[in-house]
Amino acid sequence: MMNPRNKSFGEWLVTLPSFVWLFILFVIPTLIVFTIAFKPADPWGGIGEGWTLDTLISLGNPNYPAIIWRTIWLSLVTTVVCIALALPMGYYIARAPARWRRLLLLLTVIPFWTSFLIRIFAWKVLLHPDGYVKRALVFLRLSEEGTMLLYRSEAVLLVMVYTLLPFAILPIFAAAEKFDFRLVEAARDLGAGKLRAFRQVFIPGIQRGLLTAVLMVLIPALGMYIIPDLVGGPRSEMVGNKIAQRTFVDRNLPHASALSAGLTLAVMAPMLVVLMMQGRRREEHEVR
C-alpha cells in the first residue's frame, strides 16, 4: 500500500486544483474588497494612490441608515414569511405518499432551476397598471384605479418571497423526511393539541433544516439587488442597489467596496450565529 508521504502527496494533488482556483478567484477578491475600502477614488473611475478613511466616513451620509434599515427589515420579513409558508409545506410533502412526494418535490425544484430574471419579469407584467393583479384588485374593490402596485417596498417583498421560497422549502423538507412522525403521534396520544405537538415536537426535531432554511433565505435577501432594481422604486432601494450605483453610475469603486465590505460582515453575522448553535448542539450530543 501507499506510504504516508505518498498519501499526503496524493491528497495535495487532488486538493490543489479547486483550492488554487478558489483561492485566486474567491479569497483574494474578497480581501481586495476590504483593502479598496481604505483607498481614495481617482477622478477617472479608478483607484487612487495612498490610504484614506474618507470613504468610510462618507458612509455616515444621512441616506444610508434608511437604506440599511430597509434592507434589514425587508430581509427579515421575507425570511419570516418564507419560513411560515415552508414549514407546513415541508411537513405536508414529507408526509405525502411516495408518488405524490416525488411530484410535489419536482414542482418545488422547477422554480429553483428557472431563471431568476424571467420569474421577476413575470411579476412585473402581472403588477403592471394594465396587468391582471391590478385589474383583479380593482374588480374586488381592494384597490383603486390610481394605485400603483409596482415600484414600492411591498412589491419588492412579494417578489423576494416568490423567488426565495423554494430555498426555504427544500431544507425543511429534507429535515422533515428524516423526522420520525411517530413522535408527533405519541405527543398527541399523551394529550398535546395539534399546534402544541407541531411546535414542541416537530419544530425541535427539524431544527437543523430550519436553521439552514433561514440562512438560505436571509443571506440572499440581504444582498438582493435585481429585485428592487426591477420592481422597486427610489423609495425601496436596498444596499445592493447602492453598490451597483456606486459601481456603474458614479464609478466610485472605493465607495462600492466599503458598502460591500459592510454587507459581507452583515452576511457573516447570521452564519456565525447558526454555526455556533449547531456546534453547541453537537457538543450536547457528544456529552450524551
Binding site: 474567491f26 481586495i32 474588497v33 438560505m216 444582498g223 439587488y225 445592493g240 462600492a256 460591500s260 454587507l263
Partner: peptide, 14 residues
Amino acid sequence: VVPDILMGISLLLF
C-alpha cells in the same frame, strides 16, 4: 452562500 452581488463586485475589483 455568499450573495451574488458580493461575488460580482469582488471579482470586478480583482
